[in-house]
Nucleic acid binder design. Structure first.
Lengths: 247, 247
DNA sequence: CGTGTCCTTGAATGGGGTCAACCTGAGTGG
DNA sequence: CCACTCAGGTTGACCCCATTCAAGGACACG
């Protein structure tokens, strides 16, 4: 169905990498990093850049997955909804990460932009064929699935056993660990989304943040940013050894 | 390092399947089902049958994973431990399922037998090489990782948002769904393990079970078994029906 | 028959939920 | 410029459900 990709892949080593790939901020991350230039050229033929505005939802739980995507900039959330309408966020996806089921199947999560995002989107059909031709890519996807599983299981422990302060601290550490060199970080989640992720209420999240602020562990210069003032204490509260993020 | 497997795989279509595979109860499930006889013969060369007694732990969180395994009979739990010693079970693994990281990496979970188990164990090094030669096997492992991820995320929702009755009901439904035709089921988890899995205390688990029993939703003929008397109500409770009162 | 382990049940406690009031800042219109 | 609105966030008071603490039961073991 997308077999044209084969010839594109084989179109000779001299052909240049498309500009969008050559200068892509995630060229050296995740899925794309695993591919040599010529394979990436084949992949890029069917890749489509797409912007997703903050709050927009990409597709819905229960649908067959029509596509897979890599995040170029911004952050996405994966969330599932209960009958009663309450939402549980089951994953955060940042730049360089991949979402989707290249082998098909239905997903049970909704994908929503927390930021204005830039995505690199592939039709799932094409990707399935492409992966069949590039086993090294399958390995990368598999490893990411395993990493996602690890991270989901760490959150399970937190949700099952963690107190409110542990959960909120863990979320902050998680956000902070994505840019370890900075102390000030964007906080693309609203209080309501933080509540959905931690399994708490917005009031409890707010109270914990205030406690951390009063204890001078963090500062909250604006609604959508925070500053880590005492990372050690924060990681300690989160119940994790420092430098060991939830990914 | 295990390249001898290659010649074993190619040793001609006439060679018979080893007895332990031919009569294996999971020959048609999971990983093994994806392989034709001759490939399975190659795999079986390095497979080792091993029994694990109830309560025995196979290996420990934080270690590099030395092996991968398929469950032949019995049930395993995957659990992670917090600094304070509290345990959170992050997965139950039944017959036919696969555990491990065929591509290497460290695991953060302990693997413990809930029952007396029979396992089919592979050295991780060998499996990595074998998978490289059998892309169709990679696909199966990938799909299982995705399924595990889905299930972990469902539990995340339950742990984050579910009440005590929802969690306990969900665990019973989960156990019951493994043998849909039966109404009476083995319950290989102790109360303490049920508590670890649901993120509750043993007292709360016990109270919920008693409530279900008094409401004639289940019966508890012995400590390690239960009988579903009203599956519809049970699934309804597990599905997070808001404010369901059993008094 | 005593002892230990696991389970059940009861009563008291407390952490987080719920409800409600208030605050803050961005927009909007005069 | 201020007044107004409105959504999102904060804070307080109260309450409820699960935990904690404590006692007792069921069952297997020597």
């Amino acid at each position: 169905m997308y077999l044209g990709a084969k010839s594109a892949t084989d179109s000779g080593p001299a052909a240049p990498l498309p500009v969008r790939c050559a200068f892509c901020p995630v060229r050296r991350q995740g899925m794309c990093a695993a591919l040599p230039d010529d394979a990436l050229r084949g992949l890029s033929v069917f890749a489509r850049r797409r912007k997703l505005e903050k709050g927009q939802t990409l597709h819905w739980e229960g649908d067959a997955v029509p596509l897979a995507l890599a995040v170029v900039t911004g952050m996405l959330k994966l969330a599932s909804t209960a009958q009663d309408g309450s939402e549980q966020i089951v994953g955060l996806v940042g730049a360089g990460s991949f979402v989707g089921k290249p082998l098909g199947g239905t997903t049970h999560e909704r994908i929503t932009a927390l930021d204005d995002c830039e995505l690199c989107v592939f039709p799932a059909d094409f990707l399935r064929d492409f992966v069949a031709m590039h086993p090294e890519m399958m390995a990368v996807l598999f490893e990411q699935a395993i990493a996602d599983l690890d991270s989901a299981r760490r959150w399970m422990r937190l949700l099952g056993r963690g107190s409110a302060s542990e959960r909120v601290a863990a979320l902050l550490v998680e956000m902070a660990s994505r840019r370890p060199d900075e102390t000030r970080h964007r906080l693309p989640l609203s209080r309501s989304e933080m509540a959905d992720f931690t399994g708490l209420t917005i009031e409890t999240v707010s109270r914990q943040l205030s406690r951390f602020r009063h204890a001078d562990i963090i500062a909250l210069p604006s609604r959508d940013s925070f500053e880590v003032r005492d990372l050690e204490t924060l990681t300690q509260i989160a119940g994790m050894t420092p430098g060991y993020g939830l990914h």
